[in-house]
Design a protein around this nucleic acid. Sequence first.
RNA 1: GACCCCAUCGUCUAGAGGCCUAGGACACCACCCUUUCAAGGUGGGAACACGGGUUCGAACCCCGUUGGGGUCGCCA
Length: 474
Amino acid sequence: MAVVTRFAPSPTGYLHIGGARTALFNWLYARHHQGRFLLRIEDTDRARSSADAVAAILDGLTWLSLDWDGEAVSQASRAPRHAEVARQLLADGNAYLCYASSDELAEMRALAKAEGRPMRYDGRWRDCTDAPPPGVQPVVRFRAPRSGETKIADHVQGEVVVKNEMLDDMVLLRADGTPTYMLAVVVDDHDMGVTHVVRGDDHLTNAFRQYQLYQAMGWPVPEFAHIPLIHGPDGAKLSKRHGALAVQAYRDMGFLPEAVNNYLLRLGWGHGDEEIISQKDAIAWFDLDAIGRAAARFDLTKLTSLNAHYLREADDARLTDLVLARLAADANARLADTARDRIMRGMSGLKQRARTLVDLTANAMFYAVEAPVALAPKAMEALNETAKSHLAALRPLLEAVEPWRADALETAVRAHAAEAPGGDVPLRAIAQPLRAALTGATASPPVFEVMEILGRAETLKRIDDVTTEDAPQH
RNA sequence: GACCCCAUCGUCUAGAGGCCUAGGACACCACCCUUUCAAGGUGGGAACACGGGUUCGAACCCCGUUGGGGUCGCCA
């Protein structure tokens, strides 16, 4: 049978990093088996759902290139079908009407708490033949088995058993006739042909009640895989207030989607000693049974390291576009006409020195702007009097170098350093001031490469800017 | 509190009774390379939570303890 998985977020907020991992695992499993990966928006709680949240979720999945098959299903739109199933359950005696008021429920809750046991509906309407109280809209409750036990063979958690007496009669249809999550998720997963339910292990206890519902309807029960939640760096649960950022936040921080995917994949899943895993390999290797049972902590440093790797591998033109877009958003950047061309040509040298797109953009700034460049404090320090005299002595030589290429420039400057009056000067005594003058920083791509890309005129202008008395200071 | 789940370096993990004096990655330290910074190379410190079993033999199996986590809604 073809594998069908689904990702079923509720649109009450953005797609956070934990949800993204759940989506990734579902996607990977489906693609591994050449099955289908479906998307269902669980919006049965109308009050808390929003179109913005749906848009943010779709945007997040798209950015991670987790494409879903077919149209995203709105769970709310399927309410009539949910009600239909509830009616069938009622007709079959697997459900009943419950007229208990919220006050009565609150009493049960209070009593349960006082007695130190979990809140469970006491089933007072389960077999009640009394006349219903006037004016009360009933809810539909599931008639859950009261004895025996329910067993789930979970792909991650293994075999988990719970005594049926621990489970109460859950609400299927609310007083207003709308379905609850428990009913909707089972009906939809069944109707959509979902074969494997992969979700956070906060749903593990729900799985038992859902299992019973499948049984009551006589439907085949899907395979389950409840994956551990992601924790924050301090081991506490990752919450929106505690590091569970929207995937878009990682995009803004300058991470590449492939790095986020690789990182998320390695969080709770491993394949031998493999660390850098391409999407192709991930699809080939992914397996639910290899998912770890313990919760993992989110480590931004490791994500950053992975990102640096993917940045180095990324296509220059793609990175140039990304950097330019960030530069364009920076109101302070005075972009030169040649910015794109220079950044594109300098990208291979730039990208291997950056860990995020934020770094990359900052480091590309000296290529993007027109002279004079802003000097960082350390660059200013490097440009002391000795350094300036070296630059001044170098200037006429640079004016004459042919061709204006990195290799020729390096040969010329090295020769000049070796022939310097008063013994040879170490190359760095000249290269560092040059770097400071040309890039405004003390670290950059190879300085001769920088010179070639900037061109003779721009190079000389930048040298003049720092060797002239009224050089602009920033 | 009840029920359920989990437990290998700081972090992510490999490990499915002997291959483990526990491997890899990130981070950290040192050295090499080097025009800077990265990258790369080499080396280093760093873990089987604890206590009982079972076994010729346990990181791997069992029990308990401790410590984490999850769930207990007419939310999803």
